[in-house]
Design a binder for these strands. Structure first.
Lengths: 197, 197
DNA sequence: CCATAAAAGTGACCGGAGGTCATTTTTAGA
DNA sequence: TCTAAAAATGACCTCCGGTCACTTTTATGG
């Protein structure tokens, strides 16, 4: 039993992370304090910092983990697409699954905007493990491109429309529905990436 | 000279507001503290709260004022538009003028997302004096509509694309240029609001 | 089985935030 | 010059993220 202490530490870490996911999920990133996270898990505040260097760091780990899971569900579906429109629908199924994960989409939005104020955080947030990636998007659709419009621009426009819709949603504005935005995004992608016919 | 004290109070208020606009403009909403605002204007922290109840309140007043000015410049230009495309271009001239106002567009974005966490603030932010308004947009373009697609949806999609681009921009991502987004937004509007042909 | 060292856990403390309010300073007018 | 009201002050409150000297628990060699 040489590993018992490490196991205990691992379990504490898991408990703290579970507590964090729960509280972030209900109250958001900024509204959730480190003291709340530890208290809710039954530990003292100082314990948090034995496992992560900052609240930001833990949040990034959670983002990475969540994004990985969303993408795992997506994998395969996009490959089966026979044209750009089908690929876009597969991508929007994926985006819709993010929106359906409680209010995490608003929390990602909150953190994304929050991250823009710190240079180091901003750089991190441009990596694909933490964010919708224009490069990954380009990979997913480039087989279906029928024009020389840069596929990563299609991806960036798609992300812009999606995240703009998240703002719309987080303010409680009800003018747009998810199908509205999906239709708009796909139309936009087809306009730039498919031959007119 | 019965008004001298009131005049002094007004001037203090103006000085504090000017200080706030300067500091918000360079450092953003959250990064700028009330103490910094008052110190930079040569007053003590307590003076701030003789004029506004909170940092939020002052910021909303600044937003209202700025939005009013942007719109004043826009007025007339949209009226001269002969079709939906020209109207959209006039609207994007207006949006571009917001983007060209130092880094205020990112600061509006910051505050918009920040406001979503407070119910009262969120309700306020849905008012047209504080935000790009789908109703105002609908008014501006409804004369040029050739379909029965709801004009306020065109407005909301346009705003989503614009604000999504602000996120793109605030993260320093350089995939999209302003003309890219303008072209996409106008294409989207024409697709939904103009007869195909 | 105990002594000890290492690991896990604690919570008082720090600086700085938004906001409050009793107190001081300035001003207007009789 | 005196006084009452208005303007300005800054110590103080609570809470935040983060630190760290300290206590408690645990593993292990003699």
């Amino acid at each position: 039993m040489a590993k018992k202490q490490q196991e205990k530490s691992q379990q504490t870490m898991q408990e703290l992370m579970a507590s964090a996911i729960e509280l972030f999920g209900s109250n958001g990133f900024i509204q959730t304090s480190v003291a709340e996270i530890t208290e809710h898990a039954g530990y003292a505040k100082g314990s948090f910092y034995r496992h992560w260097n900052s609240k930001d760091e833990l949040f990034l780990i959670i983002v990475e983990q969540k994004l990985k899971r969303y993408r795992a569900k997506r994998n395969g579906k996009v490959d089966k697409a026979k044209n750009l429109e089908e690929a876009m629908h597969a991508i929007w199924d994926f985006l819709e699954s993010i929106i359906n994960d409680k209010n995490w989409s608003s929390i990602f939005l909150e953190f994304t905007v929050y991250s823009a104020k710190s240079e180091t955080l901003r750089k991190l947030m441009n990596k694909s493990v933490y964010r919708l990636s224009n490069e990954i998007f380009a990979e997913l659709v480039h087989n279906h491109m029928e024009t020389d419009f840069p596929p990563e621009k299609i991806g960036a426009l798609n992300t812009a429309l999606f995240e703009g819709y998240l703002i719309h949603r987080s303010l409680g504005t009800q003018v747009l529905s998810l199908p509205d935005v999906r239709a708009a995004a796909i139309a936009l992608a087809l306009r730039n990436g498919a031959k007119q016919g």
